[in-house]
Nucleic acid binder design. Structure first.
Lengths: 192, 192, 192, 192
DNA sequence: CATGAATGAGCTTTCATTCAT
DNA sequence: GATGAATGAAAGCTCATTCAT
């Protein structure tokens, strides 16, 4: 019966996210509103404070290893599975990592207690997956924590480079890299 | 040799760094001055602007692989060398990484052109070192870029976890981890 | 005779009055509308501006001494009449005084010219009444202005205390007070 | 050693008080600063918030009956003393009353608990004085509360009229009034 | 006519920076 | 050089008012 809503909250969040990620928490709400094509008043109608807007725009996606692999893997191919997982992690981290960094660098008061920002989840997910593969006899026994950290760390670092150099690797580069990583993880570079 | 009445620039920088790293670029110059025990006037006598102070306090250390290893390694022990290198990288990254993240998250205008913030240096250093080891026949031929990225990435990620969880690993945990990483890199987890 | 769908202007005014009196002119129109159970749009359909709403809600009641006494007094009893008048003034002032104070403390531009806010009326009314009583020989000749001011002032002050202490006197306290006041006015405390 | 203070806090308070009293709490801090001839920044250097400034500028003076009379009265002249007291009350109320009204009409959160805003003090002071006079046998026994309320109320109302009509009575008018009041209080208008 | 989404002007407040000593 | 008072531009936020339905 009243004037219909014309402003899309998601559009605001995308605009804010883009600006925050590019220029830091110090971008002004005025600029966010202007870029989103709305008035500052409308911005604050949706989000009660700049901090809330910031936190909402930096919402962290999660990554469920089992769900992700369950759909895509051929059960018996460990190396293939790990390659798929590596690529999935990359895509996930390309979204999550810049937000985590932004949140960490602008420790709004209420952020501290947010456990979702913690990095443990993904590590646990990968570790659990590995241990299941070991139990199933499809993988040699090994320190799953070290393996998981190395896999994730290699992906994190790859994305990290992309962020800092502001250049995204091509699909080919990426595939070469992930395959190299998985290969090294499984076989090392030295024949023992 | 009496205590100089002038203010130690390094003390200012340390104070500023601590505050910036903990609370982000938005800490006020007033608070920095107060914490450093000086007046705001003095702060601006030393640094012409907050941005300059920020950049100075986030000065990025560099890591010269050759220098570092030259002093500490026994030439023939590749695995030992890599372990030393890994620990050295960790210590280096514990200082550098939070600053890089802070710089990336607060891209002051003048920062863009600063190549020192780029992550290529260390990658090149490690790659060069690896290729020399390969040329010297002390290491199997391999994709040095992937190897370097994995080594660095594993360390980056380890420090990353420490930053996010605000808990530093013990020396023992760290040694176990670095040795695990190097071992996997060299030999993998699967016997081929 | 079903409940009308339209909004009762008087209910709005009562809500607004209550809020204005309790919290000052700074209460927001949003809160007034919410408290009244209507939309802000409807509020502004009724009152073209917040100021108009404020002025309307602070509408000052008047007090016609003659009308008031005409119905209630026994003609020959001066002291009784004055007691009735005193109580009537009290009840009147309990409504008028807080509004006058609110209007005075928030001198909306257009208020200045509003003579109704002036306090002269009641003073004149009481003075006229007193002079009639004197002419009728039911009261000694005296300075009717001083008498009127003292009577009114005593009541104003009594209400004033109630406002500031946010506690309304009981009926008994009130009667004791008004009778004391009238007695002093008529006979003083000293035998001359 | 540093730049000397050039802004007088009292001047700020006077400016703020004048504007608040004339236009209500809604005068902007910008206008207060401009009128005081200082920057808004300086205003907030002195007062951490507009509310604090408001409260400070509405600081309520107190009136110590004994101190006041102690210096000015000839001990044995009750009526003379009361006349002096009445004038003193008037002068006091001309300052206090508008501030009390302003405070009451803008009930800043923290104001509620401020007992100084309460009107009891002066009432008690006058009552105590009267009871002492009664004990000393210089005044007939009477209801000191009613007497005090009437004296104060008459003065409050007189000032009230001045406030509302924005016209201050002349000294002569004032003296005539106070003397009339005291006379009525002591002797009434009727011979009993 | 009632609604509440949208607005934008204006508010209080902050803060990097300058300046007089 | 060190100080901290003073500044003013801009920030975050509010809110009376308008408008599309």
């Amino acid at each position: 019966m009243s004037r219909p809503t014309t402003i899309d909250t998601n559009e605001i969040l995308e605009t804010a996210r883009t600006l925050f990620l590019k220029r830091g928490f110090t971008v002004s709400t005025a600029e966010i509103a202007r870029t989103a094509g709305i008035s500052e008043g409308s911005l604050f109608n949706r989000f009660p404070s700049k901090e809330k807007l910031f936190l909402a725009s930096m919402d962290l996606p999660t990554f469920d290893v089992d769900n992700f692999l369950g759909e895509k893997t051929e059960a018996n191919e460990l190396e293939a599975n790990l390659n798929v997982l590596a690529v999935g992690l990359l895509d996930f981290l390309r979204i999550r990592l810049p937000r985590v960094m932004m949140l960490k660098s602008n420790p709004i008061e209420t952020i501290r207690s947010n456990p979702a920002a913690g990095p443990e989840e993904v590590l646990h997910g990968v570790k659990n997956y590995l241990e299941r593969e070991i139990k199933l006899g499809r993988m040699e026994n090994c320190d799953s924590e070290v393996f998981a950290r190395m896999l994730i760390g290699s992906m994190v670092n790859y994305v990290f480079f992309e962020l800092l150099s502001e250049r995204r690797h091509s699909q080919e580069e990426t595939r070469t890299y992930t395959e190299g990583v998985v290969s090294v993880l499984l076989y090392g570079v030295e024949s023992r």
